[in-house]
């Protein structure tokens, strides 16, 4: 099944806009730039989390609390659908270590601002980008790993990032797509070649450990 990027973008944009509007109307006490957090917590909770910053500081009436819970539930449902779209359309990311943090920032001039991090690799600075630019960047990265197969249990580490992949070439491609997209340009690739970071394949050491006693 190919990656349904249109549906994914629709969901992401809706999430960002809804959270931005909700944070204004719900009386969230915003003390930082972030106003909402959406997460796929692949390795910790095996689930999804949606959170509107500042609302934990507010006292809810019973009615408000129900509305708020309903709102968060909706966001989590949408987030779960986004996660499913990625896992079904991109087999290379279909593993328990997949995490995606989507931080919704204070609204920019025309559109919500987003900062997205995939498996610990930020796609932009902490200040985030306008949602259309951020989505374009995310789709480019996802497009570069489309067609890579399921990792089947192999895990690599590049620049202290843990990346499940079927082979070292796939691991390097995933890392480059999210962490150093410039490497896909000929000039930058050539310039960076002498400084290429090594890949480490994480080897389960249980068998070797047991073999010590034989």
């Amino acid at each position: 099944m190919s990656f349904d990027s249109k549906r994914f973008v629709d969901l992401l944009q809706t999430q960002a806009e809804t959270i931005t509007d909700y944070s204004k109307t719900s009386g969230a006490i915003v003390s930082s730039k972030e106003i909402g957090i959406l997460k796929f917590n692949g390795n910790i909770f095996y689930g999804t989390t949606a959170y509107v910053c500042g609302l934990h500081l507010k006292e809810f009436s019973n009615h408000e609390e129900l509305t708020h819970k309903g709102f968060i539930k909706e966001r989590e449902n949408d987030l779960a659908e986004m996660k499913t779209l990625i896992k079904e359309g991109l087999p290379a990311l279909n593993h328990d270590l997949l995490t995606m943090d989507i931080n919704v920032m204070l609204k920019g001039a025309r559109e919500p601002r987003l900062a997205i991090t995939v498996m610990g690799m930020p796609l932009c600075t902490n200040a985030g980008l306008g949602s259309s630019a951020m989505i374009k960047r995310l789709l480019t990265a996802l497009g570069r790993i489309e067609g890579l197969p399921h990792p089947k249990g192999r895990i690599f580490s590049i620049d202290n990032r843990t990346i499940p992949a079927i082979n070292p070439a796939a691991a390097y491609r995933i890392w480059a797509a999210f962490a150093v997209p410039d490497l896909f340009k000929l000039e930058n690739n050539k310039r960076a070649a002498p400084h290429a970071l090594p890949i480490h394949e994480i080897i389960p050491s249980c068998a070797a450990h047991e073999a010590l006693l034989t």
Partner: peptide, 20 residues
């Protein structure tokens, strides 16, 4: 004892060139 974590180091040159 917990097994000591280990990783195999692989050369990257070919993989970097393959990105293009």
């Amino acid at each position: 004892a917990i097994p000591i974590p280990m990783a195999e180091t692989l050369e990257t040159d070919a993989y970097q060139a393959a990105l293009l």
